[in-house]
């Protein structure tokens, strides 16, 4: 039986984030002094890139925000084709794969928290570049934004295999522009839509070959679900405006709009309680109130 990886005792498998190959729930080693479980994610970067990746992660870790995933350690083993990232465990999964039922307002507030995390990164010069529901972790202290994909080669925007990833990519990045506040805001809007709606932003995209998928995103506009509440649609439209100047200027502006949203529009109670409280309630009731 596989019992440990890079010295971490494995307790079970976990859903890996988009930038990770595999993930495990592990017991924290004594040196961390933590009682909680930790998430150990296997990244595709080789041992040779450990220094470079650790430098980037240290920049992320230096950002003071309660809305970012807490990282503990980066581990490597000579000769391995993987690096391992130990972080706080998302006890309730990710927004894409939540382990508890999430009401729409909880999803909206999770996006708001991720927007706050993104804003904290932006303020110190870091564009995330890979915001999606997979990158929004539901921890015991509330939803947080995970770190950017630190192991991608220079110039790489995304992958088009599977094409579903392209749902969250600002077409500006496919035009060649570097990730920015505006592109992260676009991704927040796309994530909000994909979290609340069952309809595809780009119908047919999931079955496209990579080149066709990129062209579909680049040369067409996303189709928004007309069944979503008008207020939510307005937020999504503004985040995903093709002209960057029409998008909210900052991610924290997006967070403020979402936190102030009148949840009566969405199915579920008209509460504006923040998600941490909602999650606490879910622990008692089995679902987010």
């Amino acid at each position: 039986m596989l019992s440990s990886v890079v010295g971490y005792r494995i307790l079970g498998r976990a859903e890996p984030a988009a930038s990770a190959r595999t993930a495990y729930l592990c017991e924290a080693p004594d040196r961390l002094g933590l009682a909680d479980q930790v998430l150990l994610s296997e990244l595709a970067g080789s041992f040779l890139r450990l220094t470079e990746v650790s430098d980037l992660l240290r920049q992320y870790c230096a950002v003071a925000s309660d809305h970012l995933l807490v990282l503990h350690e980066l581990l490597g083993d000579e000769g391995s084709s993987s690096l391992f990232l130990a972080s706080e465990a998302p006890s309730r999964g990710t927004l894409a794969n939540a382990t508890i039922p999430l009401e729409p307002q909880a999803k909206v507030l999770a996006l708001a928290a991720a927007a706050r995390g993104a804003h904290a990164l932006h303020e110190v010069g870091i564009a995330h570049g890979t915001i999606s529901p997979d990158a929004i972790f539901l921890t015991g202290r509330g939803p947080v934004l995970g770190p950017p994909d630190m192991v991608r080669p220079a110039g790489k925007v995304t992958t088009s295999k599977p094409a579903v990833v392209l749902n969250y990519v600002d077409p500006a990045l496919l035009r060649g522009e570097a990730p920015s506040r505006a592109s992260d805001i676009w991704s927040l809007g796309a994530s909000l839509h994909m979290s609340l709606s069952n309809t595809a932003l780009y119908p047919g995209l999931d079955d496209d070959e990579p080149v066709i998928a990129v062209q579909r995103v680049l040369y067409s506009r996303p189709r928004l679900d007309p069944g979503l509440p008008a207020g939510i649609l307005d937020v999504i439209r503004s985040c995903m405006a093709s002209d960057m100047s029409e998008r909210p200027p900052t991610a924290i502006a997006v967070a403020s709009i979402l936190e102030g949203y009148e949840f009566a529009d969405l199915s579920g109670p008209a509460s504006k309680a923040d998600l941490a409280e909602a999650v606490s309630a879910s622990d008692q009731t089995g679902g987010i109130a």
Binding site: V5, A62, L75, D77, F84, G125
Partner: peptide
Amino acid sequence: PSATANREASVVVDLRPGASGTRRLSKPA
């Protein structure tokens, strides 16, 4: 998952607050 199964890591980088190297960035917003 890799050659690291059931082995200790040969390099561990501490990313926790206060660890060396995790200083605030001087990059502009």
